[in-house]
Amino acid sequence: MSKILVIGQHADGKLNSGIAKVVNAAKAIGGDIHVAVFANDGSTVAAQAAALDGVAKVLVVDRAGNDDYVASAIAPQIVALTQSGGYSHVLAAGTTSGKDFLPRVAAKLGVQQVSDIMAVHSATSFDRPIYAGNAILTVEAPASPCIVATIRLASFQATGAAAAAAPIEKISVDAVIPSHTRFVKLEAQKSERPELQSANRVVSGGRALGSSENFNIIYSLADKLKAGVGASRAAVDSGYVPNDMQVGQTGKIIAPELYFAIGISGAIQHLAGIKDARTIVAINKDPEAPIFEVADYGLVGDLFALVPELEAKA
């Protein structure tokens, strides 16, 4: 039977909402599921992890500096825990932090990482997207010494709440932490809006918005719909919105129930981020725009007239 270590990524005392999805992927693999929390003081986060259905145990590794999640500091601790615990699988959420530290873990363990698992066939066989999701590769990973993988969050539902909380155990790991890398600061965008990656509805704007002032009509529609806000790369590159709003192959991969692409042409790199959206609505003045090939509802016309009208009538 497999023994699976899930890395319990967190920020500001909150377990990342993706971990419930990683646990569900772990359940599909099958086995004993342990969540490891690396933090300055992991007690709050550990309690959240312990409440997830399927988790057998939560391990807490407290160490000053762990909250910063510097890859070169976190990776050796994960490697030590994997080896001492005899884990068959190490899983992390495919967030920017998971993508940062997990390959470092894989290299230290001498294994190839399976990036972005989107489906589990067995304990060793998985699907992953390649070419911006335009092809799906099924891989078979060697079981020995272990399997190291990131989970594509848009492909999994969250596990539910456990009937009874899992036990929490404080442990220490035997790892050498280098001092060559220092966390300086995080400039986080504070927003009252639903988080892009977990929002049920998302409204995204593209280059056509033309300025950050004009982007307000996107925010305004989003607020009416209680939606998160995203953007194309062109809108981010042009400085209309910050980088963390980019949706696509090299931005965020999302799976909302309802997605609005407004003034976005539908380049394959953008589509890579919204393939799992349940319903896509596109508003574009060009009837030939590629976005209409994937949209469930298309509306041709000037966004500056249509979006305010939509906001009024929705």
């Binding site: 190839q112 092809a135 060697p142 393939k275 896509i280 209409f292 949209a295 939509l310």
Partner: peptide, 24 residues
């Protein structure tokens, strides 16, 4: 290093083309 074995490469599920609406 020992690698992942490619079992197969497949097309992603296709989204079917939706409908065009005329008005808001």
């Amino acid at each position: 290093a020992a690698g992942l074995k490619s079992v197969k490469t497949a097309n992603p599920p296709k989204r079917s083309k939706g409908v065009m609406v005329k008005t808001v």
